[in-house]
Design a protein around this nucleic acid. Structure first.
Length: 480
DNA sequence: GCATGATCATGC
DNA sequence: GCATGATCATGC
Protein backbone atom coordinates (compact mmCIF):
# COMPACT_ATOMS: atom_id res chain seq x y z
CA UNK A 1 0.00 0.00 0.00
CA UNK A 2 1.27 3.45 -0.85
CA UNK A 3 -0.90 5.79 1.18
CA UNK A 4 -1.53 6.15 4.89
CA UNK A 5 -4.96 5.13 6.21
CA UNK A 6 -5.97 8.72 6.93
CA UNK A 7 -5.08 9.77 3.41
CA UNK A 8 -7.02 6.86 2.00
CA UNK A 9 -10.00 7.77 4.15
CA UNK A 10 -10.08 11.30 2.81
CA UNK A 11 -9.81 9.91 -0.71
CA UNK A 12 -12.70 7.53 -0.11
CA UNK A 13 -14.78 10.46 1.07
CA UNK A 14 -14.04 12.23 -2.17
CA UNK A 15 -15.06 9.07 -4.03
CA UNK A 16 -18.59 9.69 -2.80
CA UNK A 17 -18.61 12.90 -4.80
CA UNK A 18 -17.21 11.25 -7.92
CA UNK A 19 -19.13 8.05 -7.64
CA UNK A 20 -19.17 4.96 -9.78
CA UNK A 21 -20.49 1.44 -9.51
CA UNK A 22 -17.57 -0.91 -9.21
CA UNK A 23 -19.67 -3.92 -10.13
CA UNK A 24 -20.63 -2.40 -13.48
CA UNK A 25 -18.08 -2.30 -16.30
CA UNK A 26 -19.86 0.51 -18.13
CA UNK A 27 -19.87 2.65 -15.01
CA UNK A 28 -16.18 1.93 -14.35
CA UNK A 29 -15.38 2.85 -17.92
CA UNK A 30 -17.43 6.06 -17.87
CA UNK A 31 -15.78 7.07 -14.62
CA UNK A 32 -12.31 6.45 -16.08
CA UNK A 33 -12.95 9.15 -18.70
CA UNK A 34 -12.65 11.70 -15.89
CA UNK A 35 -8.89 11.02 -15.91
CA UNK A 36 -8.34 12.07 -19.49
CA UNK A 37 -6.23 15.16 -20.12
CA UNK A 38 -5.50 15.26 -16.40
CA UNK A 39 -2.77 14.04 -14.07
CA UNK A 40 -3.14 12.39 -10.67
CA UNK A 41 -1.98 15.62 -9.05
CA UNK A 42 -5.27 17.18 -10.18
CA UNK A 43 -7.09 14.83 -7.81
CA UNK A 44 -4.99 15.47 -4.71
CA UNK A 45 -4.99 18.29 -2.17
CA UNK A 46 -1.59 19.83 -1.58
CA UNK A 47 -1.33 18.31 1.90
CA UNK A 48 -2.02 14.85 0.42
CA UNK A 49 0.76 15.20 -2.10
CA UNK A 50 3.34 15.53 0.64
CA UNK A 51 2.09 12.26 2.13
CA UNK A 52 2.52 10.35 -1.10
CA UNK A 53 4.75 7.38 -0.96
CA UNK A 54 6.47 6.09 -4.02
CA UNK A 55 4.31 3.87 -6.17
CA UNK A 56 3.78 2.58 -9.63
CA UNK A 57 1.32 4.60 -11.68
CA UNK A 58 -1.24 1.80 -12.03
CA UNK A 59 -1.32 1.26 -8.30
CA UNK A 60 -1.70 4.99 -7.63
CA UNK A 61 -4.55 5.29 -10.11
CA UNK A 62 -6.33 2.45 -8.36
CA UNK A 63 -5.89 4.01 -4.95
CA UNK A 64 -6.21 7.73 -5.66
CA UNK A 65 -8.77 7.78 -8.46
CA UNK A 66 -10.75 4.58 -8.07
CA UNK A 67 -10.36 4.17 -4.32
CA UNK A 68 -9.50 0.49 -4.47
CA UNK A 69 -6.51 -1.30 -3.05
CA UNK A 70 -3.99 -3.04 -5.22
CA UNK A 71 -4.89 -6.63 -5.75
CA UNK A 72 -2.23 -9.26 -6.34
CA UNK A 73 -4.89 -11.99 -6.59
CA UNK A 74 -5.33 -14.06 -9.70
CA UNK A 75 -8.61 -12.17 -10.04
CA UNK A 76 -9.37 -8.89 -11.81
CA UNK A 77 -8.98 -5.62 -9.91
CA UNK A 78 -12.71 -4.88 -10.16
CA UNK A 79 -13.70 -8.36 -9.24
CA UNK A 80 -17.50 -8.17 -9.51
CA UNK A 81 -17.29 -6.47 -12.91
CA UNK A 82 -14.46 -8.74 -14.07
CA UNK A 83 -12.38 -5.73 -15.14
CA UNK A 84 -8.59 -5.57 -14.82
CA UNK A 85 -7.07 -2.08 -14.73
CA UNK A 86 -3.93 -1.45 -16.80
CA UNK A 87 -2.00 1.76 -17.32
CA UNK A 88 0.37 1.83 -20.28
CA UNK A 89 2.65 4.54 -21.71
CA UNK A 90 2.61 6.25 -25.10
CA UNK A 91 5.37 8.14 -26.86
CA UNK A 92 4.92 10.91 -29.38
CA UNK A 93 6.35 10.29 -32.84
CA UNK A 94 8.04 12.83 -35.08
CA UNK A 95 4.70 13.98 -36.50
CA UNK A 96 3.29 14.38 -33.01
CA UNK A 97 1.15 11.25 -33.32
CA UNK A 98 0.85 8.87 -30.36
CA UNK A 99 2.81 5.60 -30.48
CA UNK A 100 2.82 2.53 -28.25
CA UNK A 101 5.92 2.63 -26.05
CA UNK A 102 5.86 -0.85 -24.55
CA UNK A 103 4.28 -4.26 -24.71
CA UNK A 104 1.62 -4.66 -22.01
CA UNK A 105 3.11 -6.78 -19.25
CA UNK A 106 0.56 -8.96 -17.50
CA UNK A 107 2.17 -11.35 -15.05
CA UNK A 108 5.52 -12.94 -14.31
CA UNK A 109 6.17 -16.47 -15.51
CA UNK A 110 7.25 -18.87 -12.80
CA UNK A 111 8.82 -21.55 -15.00
CA UNK A 112 8.48 -24.34 -12.47
CA UNK A 113 4.83 -23.63 -11.61
CA UNK A 114 3.45 -22.58 -14.97
CA UNK A 115 4.06 -25.99 -16.54
CA UNK A 116 1.32 -27.44 -14.35
CA UNK A 117 -1.25 -24.76 -15.24
CA UNK A 118 -3.43 -25.12 -18.29
CA UNK A 119 -4.54 -21.96 -20.04
CA UNK A 120 -7.98 -21.84 -18.46
CA UNK A 121 -6.39 -21.81 -14.98
CA UNK A 122 -3.60 -19.37 -15.82
CA UNK A 123 -3.34 -16.01 -14.07
CA UNK A 124 -3.46 -14.36 -17.45
CA UNK A 125 -6.77 -15.96 -18.39
CA UNK A 126 -8.34 -15.38 -14.98
CA UNK A 127 -7.32 -11.71 -14.85
CA UNK A 128 -7.07 -10.22 -18.29
CA UNK A 129 -10.10 -11.18 -20.39
CA UNK A 130 -11.61 -7.74 -19.92
CA UNK A 131 -9.22 -4.85 -19.36
CA UNK A 132 -9.66 -1.16 -18.74
CA UNK A 133 -6.56 0.12 -20.53
CA UNK A 134 -5.62 3.69 -19.72
CA UNK A 135 -2.97 5.18 -21.99
CA UNK A 136 -0.78 7.94 -20.58
CA UNK A 137 1.96 10.04 -22.10
CA UNK A 138 5.43 8.89 -21.10
CA UNK A 139 7.76 11.51 -19.63
CA UNK A 140 11.19 10.42 -18.51
CA UNK A 141 12.09 11.17 -14.91
CA UNK A 142 8.64 12.58 -14.16
CA UNK A 143 6.77 11.78 -10.96
CA UNK A 144 3.85 9.41 -11.55
CA UNK A 145 1.65 12.25 -10.29
CA UNK A 146 2.53 14.36 -13.33
CA UNK A 147 1.76 11.93 -16.12
CA UNK A 148 -1.06 12.95 -18.44
CA UNK A 149 -3.79 10.44 -19.31
CA UNK A 150 -4.72 10.35 -23.00
CA UNK A 151 -7.12 7.50 -23.86
CA UNK A 152 -9.22 5.03 -21.95
CA UNK A 153 -10.40 1.82 -23.59
CA UNK A 154 -12.40 -1.09 -22.27
CA UNK A 155 -10.93 -4.01 -24.21
CA UNK A 156 -12.34 -7.48 -24.26
CA UNK A 157 -10.32 -10.42 -25.56
CA UNK A 158 -12.86 -11.96 -27.87
CA UNK A 159 -13.29 -15.65 -28.56
CA UNK A 160 -10.97 -15.67 -31.56
CA UNK A 161 -8.27 -13.67 -29.81
CA UNK A 162 -8.46 -16.00 -26.83
CA UNK A 163 -8.10 -19.02 -29.11
CA UNK A 164 -4.94 -17.56 -30.66
CA UNK A 165 -3.66 -16.52 -27.23
CA UNK A 166 -4.28 -20.04 -25.96
CA UNK A 167 -2.18 -21.38 -28.83
CA UNK A 168 0.53 -18.85 -27.94
CA UNK A 169 0.34 -19.91 -24.30
CA UNK A 170 0.76 -23.55 -25.21
CA UNK A 171 3.75 -22.78 -27.46
CA UNK A 172 5.42 -21.04 -24.51
CA UNK A 173 4.54 -23.81 -22.03
CA UNK A 174 5.72 -26.53 -24.42
CA UNK A 175 9.09 -24.83 -24.76
CA UNK A 176 9.42 -24.60 -20.97
CA UNK A 177 8.48 -28.27 -20.54
CA UNK A 178 11.21 -29.17 -23.03
CA UNK A 179 13.72 -27.45 -20.77
CA UNK A 180 14.13 -24.57 -23.22
CA UNK A 181 13.00 -21.63 -21.09
CA UNK A 182 16.33 -19.94 -21.85
CA UNK A 183 15.46 -20.06 -25.57
CA UNK A 184 12.07 -18.36 -25.31
CA UNK A 185 11.58 -15.44 -27.67
CA UNK A 186 8.73 -13.06 -28.41
CA UNK A 187 9.05 -14.06 -32.04
CA UNK A 188 7.66 -17.51 -31.19
CA UNK A 189 4.08 -16.35 -30.80
CA UNK A 190 1.36 -14.11 -32.24
CA UNK A 191 -0.47 -12.01 -29.62
CA UNK A 192 0.73 -13.29 -26.24
CA UNK A 193 4.48 -13.08 -25.76
CA UNK A 194 7.01 -14.16 -23.16
CA UNK A 195 8.98 -10.93 -22.76
CA UNK A 196 12.16 -10.30 -20.79
CA UNK A 197 11.44 -8.75 -17.44
CA UNK A 198 13.98 -7.31 -15.06
CA UNK A 199 17.39 -5.71 -15.38
CA UNK A 200 20.19 -7.26 -17.37
CA UNK A 201 22.16 -8.23 -14.26
CA UNK A 202 19.00 -9.26 -12.48
CA UNK A 203 20.04 -12.87 -12.01
CA UNK A 204 18.76 -15.90 -13.85
CA UNK A 205 16.17 -18.28 -12.44
CA UNK A 206 15.67 -22.03 -12.43
CA UNK A 207 13.58 -23.86 -14.98
CA UNK A 208 12.20 -27.39 -15.00
CA UNK A 209 13.86 -30.15 -17.05
CA UNK A 210 17.13 -28.32 -17.58
CA UNK A 211 20.11 -27.23 -15.48
CA UNK A 212 20.52 -24.10 -17.56
CA UNK A 213 19.20 -21.04 -15.78
CA UNK A 214 16.94 -18.72 -17.76
CA UNK A 215 16.27 -14.94 -17.75
CA UNK A 216 13.08 -13.82 -16.02
CA UNK A 217 10.13 -13.42 -18.33
CA UNK A 218 6.52 -12.29 -18.12
CA UNK A 219 3.42 -12.88 -20.19
CA UNK A 220 2.60 -9.80 -22.24
CA UNK A 221 0.42 -8.57 -25.05
CA UNK A 222 2.88 -7.90 -27.84
CA UNK A 223 3.56 -4.53 -29.48
CA UNK A 224 1.54 -5.13 -32.65
CA UNK A 225 -1.49 -6.19 -30.64
CA UNK A 226 -1.19 -3.07 -28.49
CA UNK A 227 -1.00 -0.96 -31.65
CA UNK A 228 -4.35 -2.28 -32.81
CA UNK A 229 -5.85 -1.35 -29.43
CA UNK A 230 -4.35 2.13 -29.74
CA UNK A 231 -5.70 2.45 -33.30
CA UNK A 232 -9.11 1.62 -31.90
CA UNK A 233 -8.71 4.21 -29.13
CA UNK A 234 -7.74 6.89 -31.68
CA UNK A 235 -10.66 6.13 -33.98
CA UNK A 236 -13.37 5.55 -31.44
CA UNK A 237 -14.96 8.44 -29.66
CA UNK A 238 -15.94 6.42 -26.63
CA UNK A 239 -13.48 3.52 -26.51
CA UNK A 240 -16.16 1.44 -24.88
CA UNK A 241 -16.42 -1.74 -26.80
CA UNK A 242 -16.62 -5.33 -25.84
CA UNK A 243 -16.83 -6.37 -29.46
CA UNK A 244 -14.49 -4.51 -31.78
CA UNK A 245 -15.18 -4.88 -35.48
CA UNK A 246 -11.99 -5.00 -37.45
CA UNK A 247 -12.21 -3.25 -40.81
CA UNK A 248 -9.49 -5.25 -42.59
CA UNK A 249 -11.42 -8.53 -42.69
CA UNK A 250 -10.57 -11.87 -41.16
CA UNK A 251 -8.59 -14.81 -42.51
CA UNK A 252 -9.72 -17.62 -40.25
CA UNK A 253 -12.77 -18.41 -38.11
CA UNK A 254 -13.02 -19.40 -34.47
CA UNK A 255 -14.21 -22.84 -35.60
CA UNK A 256 -11.04 -23.34 -37.64
CA UNK A 257 -8.85 -22.20 -34.74
CA UNK A 258 -10.36 -24.85 -32.50
CA UNK A 259 -8.90 -27.53 -34.76
CA UNK A 260 -5.54 -26.11 -35.90
CA UNK A 261 -3.07 -23.36 -35.17
CA UNK A 262 -3.27 -20.14 -37.16
CA UNK A 263 -0.02 -20.83 -39.01
CA UNK A 264 -1.07 -24.39 -39.85
CA UNK A 265 -4.36 -23.08 -41.21
CA UNK A 266 -2.76 -20.49 -43.48
CA UNK A 267 0.06 -22.71 -44.73
CA UNK A 268 -2.47 -25.52 -45.18
CA UNK A 269 -4.32 -23.45 -47.75
CA UNK A 270 -1.28 -23.61 -50.04
CA UNK A 271 -1.26 -27.41 -50.00
CA UNK A 272 -3.15 -28.02 -53.24
CA UNK A 273 -1.16 -25.45 -55.14
CA UNK A 274 2.43 -26.50 -54.41
CA UNK A 275 4.27 -27.53 -57.56
CA UNK A 276 1.84 -25.73 -59.84
CA UNK A 277 2.80 -23.06 -62.36
CA UNK A 278 1.79 -19.56 -61.24
CA UNK A 279 -0.26 -18.96 -64.40
CA UNK A 280 -2.32 -22.09 -63.76
CA UNK A 281 -2.87 -21.02 -60.15
CA UNK A 282 -3.97 -17.57 -61.31
CA UNK A 283 -6.50 -19.18 -63.63
CA UNK A 284 -7.85 -21.37 -60.82
CA UNK A 285 -8.05 -18.37 -58.48
CA UNK A 286 -9.61 -16.16 -61.13
CA UNK A 287 -6.78 -13.62 -61.09
CA UNK A 288 -6.37 -11.53 -64.24
CA UNK A 289 -2.70 -11.42 -65.31
CA UNK A 290 -3.36 -9.92 -68.74
CA UNK A 291 -2.06 -6.50 -67.72
CA UNK A 292 1.07 -7.97 -66.13
CA UNK A 293 0.57 -6.34 -62.75
CA UNK A 294 3.89 -5.82 -60.99
CA UNK A 295 2.57 -7.43 -57.86
CA UNK A 296 1.08 -10.51 -59.56
CA UNK A 297 2.94 -13.02 -57.41
CA UNK A 298 1.72 -11.18 -54.32
CA UNK A 299 -1.82 -11.22 -55.72
CA UNK A 300 -1.64 -14.98 -56.16
CA UNK A 301 -0.19 -15.58 -52.68
CA UNK A 302 -2.83 -13.29 -51.22
CA UNK A 303 -5.69 -15.09 -52.89
CA UNK A 304 -4.50 -18.48 -51.63
CA UNK A 305 -3.88 -17.24 -48.06
CA UNK A 306 -7.31 -15.62 -47.91
CA UNK A 307 -8.97 -18.76 -49.26
CA UNK A 308 -10.33 -16.79 -52.21
CA UNK A 309 -11.95 -14.17 -50.00
CA UNK A 310 -11.51 -10.52 -50.97
CA UNK A 311 -9.32 -9.80 -47.96
CA UNK A 312 -5.89 -8.20 -48.10
CA UNK A 313 -3.78 -10.57 -46.04
CA UNK A 314 -1.43 -7.86 -44.81
CA UNK A 315 -4.41 -5.74 -43.72
CA UNK A 316 -6.34 -8.59 -42.12
CA UNK A 317 -7.21 -8.64 -38.44
CA UNK A 318 -4.90 -11.52 -37.59
CA UNK A 319 -1.88 -10.20 -39.53
CA UNK A 320 -2.34 -6.71 -38.07
CA UNK A 321 -2.77 -7.87 -34.48
CA UNK A 322 0.23 -10.21 -34.76
CA UNK A 323 2.39 -7.73 -36.70
CA UNK A 324 2.74 -10.26 -39.52
CA UNK A 325 3.70 -9.35 -43.09
CA UNK A 326 3.41 -11.54 -46.15
CA UNK A 327 6.13 -11.21 -48.82
CA UNK A 328 6.83 -13.15 -51.99
CA UNK A 329 10.23 -14.45 -53.11
CA UNK A 330 11.19 -15.64 -56.58
CA UNK A 331 14.11 -18.02 -56.93
CA UNK A 332 15.80 -18.27 -60.34
CA UNK A 333 16.43 -21.69 -61.86
CA UNK A 334 20.15 -21.35 -61.05
CA UNK A 335 19.39 -20.61 -57.41
CA UNK A 336 19.89 -16.85 -57.15
CA UNK A 337 17.08 -14.57 -56.02
CA UNK A 338 15.28 -12.67 -58.76
CA UNK A 339 14.75 -9.42 -56.87
CA UNK A 340 15.90 -7.86 -53.61
CA UNK A 341 13.11 -7.24 -51.08
CA UNK A 342 11.94 -3.71 -50.37
CA UNK A 343 10.30 -2.35 -47.23
CA UNK A 344 8.99 1.05 -46.27
CA UNK A 345 10.49 4.33 -47.34
CA UNK A 346 12.88 5.76 -44.80
CA UNK A 347 11.17 8.42 -42.75
CA UNK A 348 14.17 10.70 -42.35
CA UNK A 349 12.85 12.73 -39.44
CA UNK A 350 11.81 9.56 -37.60
CA UNK A 351 15.36 8.16 -37.84
CA UNK A 352 16.86 11.55 -37.07
CA UNK A 353 14.79 11.98 -33.90
CA UNK A 354 14.96 8.39 -32.65
CA UNK A 355 17.64 7.94 -30.00
CA UNK A 356 17.21 4.25 -29.29
CA UNK A 357 17.41 1.45 -31.86
CA UNK A 358 14.73 -0.54 -30.05
CA UNK A 359 12.30 2.37 -30.40
CA UNK A 360 12.96 2.77 -34.11
CA UNK A 361 10.55 2.02 -36.91
CA UNK A 362 13.17 -0.18 -38.58
CA UNK A 363 13.47 -2.35 -35.46
CA UNK A 364 9.70 -2.63 -35.46
CA UNK A 365 9.71 -3.82 -39.08
CA UNK A 366 12.68 -6.18 -38.87
CA UNK A 367 11.78 -7.76 -35.53
CA UNK A 368 8.26 -8.60 -36.68
CA UNK A 369 7.28 -11.96 -38.10
CA UNK A 370 7.04 -12.64 -41.83
CA UNK A 371 5.29 -15.12 -44.01
CA UNK A 372 7.34 -15.83 -47.12
CA UNK A 373 5.80 -17.40 -50.20
CA UNK A 374 8.42 -18.84 -52.54
CA UNK A 375 8.07 -19.28 -56.31
CA UNK A 376 10.82 -21.22 -58.07
CA UNK A 377 11.78 -21.00 -61.74
CA UNK A 378 12.00 -24.40 -63.46
CA UNK A 379 14.13 -23.59 -66.52
CA UNK A 380 16.75 -20.87 -66.65
CA UNK A 381 15.47 -17.55 -68.04
CA UNK A 382 12.07 -19.03 -68.89
CA UNK A 383 10.15 -17.34 -66.09
CA UNK A 384 8.20 -20.58 -65.56
CA UNK A 385 7.78 -20.19 -61.82
CA UNK A 386 5.99 -22.78 -59.73
CA UNK A 387 4.71 -22.32 -56.18
CA UNK A 388 7.40 -23.97 -54.10
CA UNK A 389 7.03 -23.09 -50.43
CA UNK A 390 5.27 -20.98 -47.82
CA UNK A 391 6.63 -20.50 -44.32
CA UNK A 392 6.76 -18.17 -41.34
CA UNK A 393 10.07 -16.56 -40.40
CA UNK A 394 11.51 -14.25 -37.76
CA UNK A 395 14.90 -12.56 -38.09
CA UNK A 396 17.54 -14.18 -35.85
CA UNK A 397 18.99 -12.07 -33.05
CA UNK A 398 22.45 -12.03 -34.67
CA UNK A 399 21.03 -10.47 -37.85
CA UNK A 400 19.09 -7.91 -35.83
CA UNK A 401 22.44 -6.80 -34.42
CA UNK A 402 23.66 -6.21 -37.98
CA UNK A 403 20.44 -4.35 -38.66
CA UNK A 404 21.28 -2.00 -35.82
CA UNK A 405 24.59 -1.13 -37.53
CA UNK A 406 22.66 -0.58 -40.75
CA UNK A 407 20.29 1.75 -38.93
CA UNK A 408 23.15 3.61 -37.21
CA UNK A 409 24.78 4.12 -40.60
CA UNK A 410 21.57 5.48 -42.12
CA UNK A 411 21.15 7.75 -39.12
CA UNK A 412 24.70 9.10 -39.47
CA UNK A 413 24.06 9.92 -43.12
CA UNK A 414 20.85 11.76 -42.28
CA UNK A 415 22.59 13.65 -39.45
CA UNK A 416 25.43 14.57 -41.81
CA UNK A 417 22.78 15.86 -44.24
CA UNK A 418 24.09 13.58 -47.02
CA UNK A 419 20.89 11.90 -48.22
CA UNK A 420 22.09 10.86 -51.65
CA UNK A 421 22.73 7.76 -53.77
CA UNK A 422 26.44 7.86 -52.98
CA UNK A 423 26.65 7.15 -49.28
CA UNK A 424 24.37 4.28 -48.29
CA UNK A 425 25.21 0.63 -47.77
CA UNK A 426 25.02 -0.92 -51.24
CA UNK A 427 23.99 -4.39 -52.22
CA UNK A 428 27.64 -4.98 -53.20
CA UNK A 429 28.81 -4.33 -49.65
CA UNK A 430 27.29 -7.70 -48.73
CA UNK A 431 26.04 -6.56 -45.35
CA UNK A 432 22.61 -8.28 -45.56
CA UNK A 433 20.79 -4.97 -46.11
CA UNK A 434 21.12 -1.96 -48.36
CA UNK A 435 19.40 1.32 -49.21
CA UNK A 436 17.93 2.10 -52.61
CA UNK A 437 15.46 4.55 -54.10
CA UNK A 438 11.73 3.92 -54.05
CA UNK A 439 9.54 6.59 -55.58
CA UNK A 440 7.14 7.17 -58.43
CA UNK A 441 9.77 9.30 -60.19
CA UNK A 442 13.32 10.35 -59.42
CA UNK A 443 11.94 13.86 -59.01
CA UNK A 444 9.44 12.63 -56.42
CA UNK A 445 11.04 14.19 -53.34
CA UNK A 446 10.47 14.87 -49.66
CA UNK A 447 12.03 17.33 -47.24
CA UNK A 448 14.97 16.23 -45.14
CA UNK A 449 15.24 17.20 -41.44
CA UNK A 450 17.42 20.13 -42.55
CA UNK A 451 14.74 21.27 -44.97
CA UNK A 452 16.39 20.16 -48.22
CA UNK A 453 14.52 18.48 -51.04
CA UNK A 454 15.81 14.90 -51.15
CA UNK A 455 15.01 11.68 -52.98
CA UNK A 456 12.90 8.92 -51.45
CA UNK A 457 14.88 5.88 -50.38
CA UNK A 458 13.80 2.69 -48.68
CA UNK A 459 15.08 -0.27 -46.67
CA UNK A 460 16.05 -3.40 -48.62
CA UNK A 461 17.12 -6.99 -47.96
CA UNK A 462 20.01 -8.00 -50.24
CA UNK A 463 19.29 -10.80 -52.74
CA UNK A 464 22.06 -12.80 -51.05
CA UNK A 465 20.38 -12.46 -47.64
CA UNK A 466 17.10 -13.76 -49.05
CA UNK A 467 19.03 -16.62 -50.62
CA UNK A 468 20.45 -17.45 -47.19
CA UNK A 469 16.95 -17.44 -45.65
CA UNK A 470 15.64 -19.73 -48.38
CA UNK A 471 18.54 -22.17 -48.15
CA UNK A 472 18.29 -22.42 -44.36
CA UNK A 473 14.61 -23.17 -44.79
CA UNK A 474 15.51 -25.77 -47.42
CA UNK A 475 17.74 -27.54 -44.89
CA UNK A 476 14.88 -27.73 -42.40
CA UNK A 477 12.55 -29.10 -45.08
CA UNK A 478 15.10 -31.73 -46.11
CA UNK A 479 15.44 -32.92 -42.52
CA UNK A 480 11.72 -33.60 -42.30
C1' DG B 1 24.81 -11.09 -65.25
C1' DC B 2 24.24 -8.44 -61.57
C1' DA B 3 23.92 -4.00 -59.08
C1' DT B 4 21.84 0.07 -59.11
C1' DG B 5 18.67 3.54 -60.04
C1' DA B 6 13.98 4.19 -61.80
C1' DT B 7 9.40 3.31 -62.02
C1' DC B 8 4.65 1.01 -61.85
C1' DA B 9 -0.10 -1.36 -60.83
C1' DT B 10 -3.06 -1.77 -57.23
C1' DG B 11 -6.03 -0.52 -53.57
C1' DC B 12 -7.43 2.20 -50.03
C1' DG C 1 -2.85 10.97 -53.82
C1' DC C 2 -0.06 8.12 -51.58
C1' DA C 3 1.62 3.75 -49.47
C1' DT C 4 2.44 -0.81 -50.64
C1' DG C 5 4.55 -4.52 -52.84
C1' DA C 6 6.81 -5.04 -56.07
C1' DT C 7 9.33 -5.22 -61.18
C1' DC C 8 11.75 -2.86 -64.98
C1' DA C 9 15.75 -1.06 -67.47
C1' DT C 10 20.15 0.41 -67.91
C1' DG C 11 25.06 0.37 -67.61
C1' DC C 12 29.06 -1.38 -65.60
Amino acid sequence: MCLSDTTLLSLYMKMNIREYDRSDKRSIYDYSKGLLNKTLRDFLESDEISKMGKGKLGQLVEEIYFGIKNNPNPRPDFEEAGVELKCTPLNTGSNGEYLIKERLVCNMINYCEVVTEDFEHSHFYLKCQLMLIIFYLHKSDASPLDLMFIFSVLWKLEEKDLLIIKQDYNIIITKIIRGEAHLLSEGDTMYLGACRKGQKDDGLVEQPNSDIKAPKRAFCLKMAYMRTILDFAKKSKYGYSTNVQFSGGQLVSAEELKAKSFEELIIGRFGNYFGKNYRDIAKECDIDLSRNPKNMFAMIANSISANGKKVSVNQSEEFKKAGLTMKTIRVNAHGTIKEAMSFENINYSEVNDCENWYDSRLYEIFSSRFMFVVFREQNANKGDYILDDAFFWTMPQSDLEKAEQYWQHIKAIIKADKIDDNYWWKSKDEKLFHVRPKASKSTDCVLSPSGKKVKKFCYWFNNSYIKEIVSKRQEIRNEK
